[in-house]
């Protein structure tokens, strides 16, 4: 019998959240955790924590808000099955569910997203590429308002694993080899100094959940078709696939923020 380690996926949404006026957190019976369970169950994405559970993409781990005010909410799940051949990491569904939860609590103004991506669960040596399904999924973003296009900066941190450094140039070529309109990648840079490029988000999880602490990083600059959790989820899955196809086999901490002066679809 095989032994399969857990694959953890984590998201932290940063920005501001204006609570709905009818929702009093002191008496509310729901919270980010229960809302995420309810929403992902309703949409068929939750695998129940029972012996004979079937279906779903993830099992619930935890969720919450804060502790710092700028962290709107955070969510942690375990992938319940190996990522199916030919399918990407389910990050778009994950962030979509997170977005639904936050929208039940208040009106967010999203500044940045941090994601722990279990790239190790995408074994490029044994899996069929998931890039074609991603392009089908990209159809969701077709015919968007051109004014929604948003310059973004996306940092992938492998922590103590340095493979992202050697993978980054090949990832850029790989990304540019495909025709898609969701993310136009302009350039990348390699820097291991957390302060060099203005990134201020410390990893949102303890070192033991990935190869922390933060260290080996690559930052991609480009234009995202819209500043939304859906688009960020697509981009994260795309970059995870790019990393996996180019030699990265360990978890990556992705941090995405939009550059100053850009417009948002969701503001």
């Amino acid at each position: 019998m095989s032994i399969r380690p857990d694959s953890t996926m984590f998201a932290a949404l940063h920005g501001e959240l204006a609570l709905h006026p009818w929702r009093d957190p002191r008496v509310a019976s729901s919270d980010a955790y229960s809302l995420f369970v309810a929403r992902s169950s309703a949409l068929g994405w939750l695998t129940e924590a029972t012996e004979n559970a079937s279906g779903g993409l993830w099992g619930m781990n935890d969720a919450g808000q804060g502790p710092e005010p700028s962290r709107i909410a955070w969510f942690q799940v375990s992938l319940t099955e190996p990522v199916p051949d030919g399918r990407p990491l389910p990050v778009q569904a994950f962030l979509s569910c997170a977005g639904d939860v936050v929208a039940r609590i208040g009106t967010p103004r999203l500044r940045a997203v941090q994601l722990l991506l279990p790239v190790q669960s995408l074994d490029a040596s044994t899996r069929a590429s998931a890039v074609l399904p991603l392009f089908q999924d990209a159809g969701w973003f077709a015919d968007g308002d051109p004014r929604w296009r948003t310059p973004v900066r996306v940092t992938l941190d492998g922590g103590q694993d340095p493979s992202i450094h050697s993978a980054a140039p090949e990832m850029l070529q790989w990304i540019r080899s495909f025709t898609q309109d969701v993310f136009a990648c302009d350039s990348f840079s390699l820097t291991d100094d957390l302060t060099d490029d203005g990134m201020v988000l410390e990893p949102a999880v303890i070192d033991e959940l990935w190869r922390g602490p933060a260290r080996h990083r690559a930052t991609f600059h480009g234009v995202l078709t819209e500043w939304s959790l859906d688009a960020l989820g697509w981009l994260a899955a795309f970059l995870a696939e790019a990393a996996s196809r180019n030699g990265v086999g360990t978890p990556l901490m992705l941090t995405a923020d939009r550059l100053e002066g850009s417009r948002s679809r969701v503001d």
């Binding site: 942690q76 375990s78 303890i206």
Partner: peptide, 10 residues
């Protein structure tokens, strides 16, 4: 109901 035992993020 329960969830999956996991390593805490904090």
């Amino acid at each position: 109901a329960g969830d999956y035992v996991h390593v805490s993020s904090s």
